[in-house]
């Protein structure tokens, strides 16, 4: 029999617990970052290739769509890191209790969004 993984659930009518949101955003951010790998390498190349390209990259990231894209990538990386650390903790049995699991879920959601916004606003 075919293995049945990832049942398709009606997400619009489900109340997803906060840990579920952290998990699905972990997947979404991971997929986004995986697809953007060539773009990130391109940015690294521009940053090192010449002073002109370096300045061009910084100008792109400092305003408009470039800034928004940079913020999204930053958030995705932070959320993926924090949610991933949380899942590693769950792997070794840390924070599995209902209360603690909810706390770490909220904490990773808030910290990723907060850090991304703070860095984006130039506070850090």
């Amino acid at each position: 029999m075919r293995p049945r993984r990832g049942y398709s659930l009606d997400l619009l009518h489900l109340h997803l617990p906060v840990g579920g949101w952290v998990s699905i955003l972990h997947r979404a951010s991971g997929a986004l970052l995986a697809l953007l790998v060539p773009c990130l390498l391109y940015a690294l190349m521009l940053s090192l290739r010449s002073a002109e390209d370096h300045a061009r990259l910084l100008a792109f990231l400092s305003g408009g769509p470039g800034r928004a894209l940079g913020l999204v990538v930053l958030w995705a990386a932070l959320h993926h890191l924090l949610a991933g650390l949380r899942h590693l903790g769950l792997d070794i049995g840390w924070g599995e209790g209902r209360r603690r699991a909810r706390q770490t879920a909220w904490a990773s959601l808030a910290a990723a969004a907060g850090l991304a916004l703070a860095i984006g606003a130039g506070l850090l």
Binding site: R5, G6, R27, G30, A31, A34, V37, L41
Partner: peptide
């Protein structure tokens, strides 16, 4: 770091592909 990132991305994409 890049090698770890690529291994991580490739393994993760496989999980997603298996599901969808």
């Amino acid at each position: 770091f890049v090698a770890a990132l690529l291994i991580h991305a490739w393994t993760g994409l496989k999980e997603i592909l298996i599901d969808y």
